[in-house]
Design a protein around this nucleic acid. Structure first.
Lengths: 191, 191, 191, 191
DNA sequence: GATGAATGAGAGTTCATTCAT
DNA sequence: AATGAATGAACTCTCATTCAT
C-alpha cells in the first residue's frame, strides 16, 4: 500500500520504468520498420520482455502506438524549440523542415504523428506545442523575409506531413528529397 | 486477342472476364474505403462472388492489390494523356496535379500506386506510361514558361505522391488542399 | 492462541491477521457479485492490498474460494445454532431455510458452499457442523409435528441447496421465492 | 435439428450441416462435462474440426452456448409434448419432472436453459413453447386432482430449475434425487 | 469455372502465479 | 510481511488460403 499521491502517474519502480522505456524503444523501432501493423509480440521480443509486460504497461496496442507518437512529438517539439531559440530566423524553418523529412525516410510512424486528424489516436493535444513551435519558426522566417507573408501555419504543417509521408512511403533517396524540398521551399518564398 | 502483357493468358470465358472486372471494381471501392487491411471476403461480397472466385483470379491478396493499382494507374495515365493532347500546355500539369490530389482525398489506395518504390508490390512497370505522360505535361509546361526549366519529372512525381498522401491521411479539407497546392505550384514556377 | 484447524499455523502478526480478514471480506463481496470467475486482482484491490499479499495468505485462488466458503458456512452454522437454541421448534427449520434462500438471491457463492460434493473444493469438513445444526432443527421440527417423520437431513440439505441455486441463477423475485418455498415446506410437512 | 423452416437460413451444404451438428454435439458434451467455461478449442477437437470451423458456424462462444440451449430446450419441449399427448394426466407432470432432474445429474448446461432470466443469453423465446407444455401438464395434473389447484406454472418452472441445478452441482445420487423429489411432489399435492 | 466450407497460423488480451525489490 | 512488476500459458476471434463439391 503505497501512499499514492493523488496525482496521475505515481513514480514507477526502477525496473518498471526501465522496462517501460525498453518497450517504447522497441516499439519505436519495430513500428518504424514494419508499420503499425507489426505485432505486439515482436515488440515484446525486441524489448526482451514477456508479452504480458507489454500489456501491463500499455493495456492496448492502441495505447502503445499512442505513447510512441506522443514521445516522438515531444522530441520533435524540443528540437524545434531549440532551433527557435538560437537558429537563424531566415533558415530555421527550412532547416527543421528538411531535417524532419530526412528522419521520416527511416521512420514509419513519424508522419502519422503530424496529423492528429488523420489518425484516430487521440493524443491529448500533444500536437499543440509542436504546432506552436512551427508557428514560431514560420513567423521568424516571415519577419526575416524568407517566407512570403501570406503563408499560414496550417499549410506548413500540411506540407511537412505530406513531405514526410512521401519520403517514407516513396522511399526517396537523399537527392530526390533535396530537390523536392527545394521546390517546396521556393513555393514558400515566392507568391 | 486481347493485348495481354505477359505470356500465356488465354482469352477468358465471357463470365470469367465479367467476374474479374467486378472483383476489381469491388476491390477498388473496398480498399479505397477501408484501406488495404480490409478483408478479401468483403471484396468478394461486394463483388457478388464467392471468396474462391476472388482467389482464382488473384491467387494472393497481394496480387489483387497490385492489379487494382495497375488499373488505377492506367486510368490516370489515360486522363493525363487526354490533357496532354488537348489541354493548355501552361496549365495542364497543374490541372492534373490538382485533380489527382483532389481524388486521393477520398481514395485510400491512390497514392501507393504512385510510388513503385514505396510499396513492395512490383507492378510490372505500369508506372512507366503514367510517368511518361507526366513528363510530357511537364515539358509542355516548361516550354510554355509555366514551370522553371530545372525541374525534373522525378520531383513532380514525388510531390504528387506526397500531396496525395498528405491529402488522404491528413484529412485536408478543400481549402487547405488549395492553399497547399498553391505553394507547391509556386515552387515549381520560381527558382 | 487462535484455534487453527490445521497443523502448524503460527500466531500471525497483527497486521497479517488484519489483512487476512480484509482479503476474506473483499473476496466474499467480489465473488458474490461477479461469481467465482472474478479475478484475484479485483479482490486485492477491494481489500486494499497488493496482489502478492493475497497469494501469500492463500497460495491459490482455489484456496481463497475454499476459505470464503468455510467462512460463510461458519456464519450460517452460528445462525442455525442460535435458532436451535431459542427459536420455536416447529418453525425454526422453516425460518432458517427461508432466510438462507433469501440471502442467496444476492450471493453468488452461498450455494456452492452447501454442497461439499458438488464443488471440487474440499473444505476439510466444515460442512459437518452446519449439517449438524440443520439436523437439530429438523429433529425439533419433527418432534413438534411440523415435519413428517420420514424426512432425513440429507433431503433437507439437498432442497436447501437447490432452492438457493434456483433463487440465485433463476433471479426469482421475492414473491416467487415465497411461493416456491411454500410448496417445498408443504412437501416437508405432508406424506 | 430441424430443416430450417424459420426465417432466412438458406440450406446448408451437406458437409456444412454435418459439421454443424457435430459441433453442437461436441459442445453439448464438453459444456455438459466442464461447464460453460470450457474452451472452444476443446469443442473443436471433440468435434474433429478446426477451430475456425467452430467460429464459422457460431461467430461467438456466446452464440454456441445459445444454440446448444435452444437445441436442448427444443428436445425437452418435444418430450413434454409427447407426455401431454399420451401420458396419464395425473402423473405426467411428475414423470417429466423426475426425468428432467435425472438428466441434469449428468448435464452441466440443462438448468441454465430453464431460466431465461438467469442467463444473459437471449434465446429468442425458445423457452416459451417449453413453458407452455409444462403449463399443459400442470393443468391436466390439477384436473386429475394430482396437484393442488393454487399451484401456478411459475412455481413449477422454478422448482424444476432448482432441482436440476441441485442435482447437477450437488452431485446427488439416484436415491437422494428420489427422496428430494418425493418431498417436492408432496408439496405440489398438499396445501 | 464457381462455390463456400474448412483450415490453422497468428493476433490481441487476460489472469493465476512467481519473485525481485 | 508486503509490494507490485514480470511471466507465459490459455483464450477468443480473424483471415488469407486451400479444396471438396
Amino acid at each position: 500500500m503505497v501512499a499514492s499521491s493523488a496525482g496521475e502517474t505515481r513514480p514507477l519502480r526502477a525496473d518498471a520504468r526501465r522496462n517501460r522505456e525498453r518497450i517504447l524503444g522497441a516499439a519505436g523501432a519495430v513500428f518504424a520498420e514494419h508499420g503499425p501493423a507489426a505485432s505486439t509480440e515482436q515488440v515484446a521480443e525486441r524489448a526482451g520482455v514477456a508479452i504480458g509486460t507489454v500489456f501491463r504497461h500499455f493495456p492496448t496496442k492502441r495505447d502503445l502506438l499512442q505513447a510512441i507518437m506522443k514521445d516522438l512529438l515531444a522530441r520533435l517539439t524540443a528540437e524545434a524549440t531549440a532551433l527557435a531559440a538560437d537558429g537563424d530566423p531566415a533558415t530555421a524553418l527550412f532547416t527543421f523542415f528538411a531535417r524532419l523529412v530526412e528522419q521520416s525516410a527511416n521512420q514509419k510512424t513519424v508522419i502519422e504523428s503530424l496529423t492528429e486528424t488523420g489518425t484516430d489516436l487521440p493524443m491529448a493535444g500533444a500536437v499543440g506545442p509542436f504546432r506552436d513551435q512551427i508557428a514560431t519558426l514560420l513567423e521568424r522566417a516571415q519577419a526575416a523575409g524568407a517566407v512570403r507573408p501570406g503563408v499560414r501555419t496550417d499549410e506548413v504543417m500540411a506540407l511537412l506531413a505530406a513531405q514526410c509521408q512521401g519520403a517514407l512511403h516513396g522511399g526517396w533517396d537523399a537527392d530526390l528529397r533535396g530537390r523536392t524540398l527545394a521546390i517546396v521551399f521556393a513555393g514558400l518564398r515566392h507568391p
